[in-house]
């Protein structure tokens, strides 16, 4: 029962490591790659603190073996801000969508994948989408507001002609 080589893309970077087959993906991310923004809050796939995005879908990395990520692309909280904060990060900050901050990376990763599928969600849809992520501090109301903030902002941006397009129109 030796180790195996696993090759995957993590936050856009190719990664190759030797791992025990039983190594949980969350431990791989936290210990082997030192990306400690992904957290662990339970041992029964209940809390969602370990949520990452794998091939575009939000999944709980405590219930996947690292070897299963072979050839896949995963994204963690550390890579969400690009040229400034992501609208979700802004939303969580603006709306006070976090207190202790422990569930926050999982909440943001879950919401990010969700908004990619549904960019104009209702409150009920948001509550449904985050129902696999436990928060003990906020009572969820401000998390919902944070996601609504991001959704509006992303929707606005998606429907706004970009600078370049405007110039083309003028030209």
């Amino acid at each position: 029962m030796g180790t195996r080589t696993v090759n995957l893309t993590v936050n856009g970077q190719a990664v190759t490591r030797e791992v025990e087959p039983r190594l949980l993906l969350v431990h791989f991310i936290r210990e082997d790659l030192s990306l400690t923004g992904t957290h662990i809050g339970c041992d029964t796939t209940s809390c969602g603190a370990c949520t990452i995005i794998m091939d575009g879908k939000a999944v709980k990395s405590c219930t996947i073996f690292a070897v299963q990520a072979e050839g896949r692309s995963i994204e963690t909280i550390e890579d969400v801000a690009k040229d400034g904060l992501h609208p979700l990060q802004e939303g969580f900050w603006e709306k006070h969508g976090l207190q202790c901050g422990f569930c926050t990376p999982g909440m943001i990763m879950c919401s990010k994948a969700f908004l990619q599928e549904n960019d104009q969600p209702t409150e009920a849809e948001i509550r449904w989408a985050i129902s696999g992520n436990l928060c003990r501090c906020t009572g969820y109301v401000k998390i919902v507001e944070a996601i609504q903030y991001a959704a509006e902002k992303m929707h606005e941006k998606a429907n706004q002609p970009t600078q370049v397009q405007e110039q083309e129109v003028v030209a």
Binding site: T76, A81, L85, T104
Partner: peptide, 21 residues
């Protein structure tokens, strides 16, 4: 006031005990 501590948490840069190595 928006919280001063939030930037680290929303970017995965909080430092919890299990993050200490």
């Amino acid at each position: 006031m928006k919280r001063k501590e939030d930037p680290r948490f929303i970017q995965g840069a909080g430092k919890f005990v299990d993050d200490i190595k």
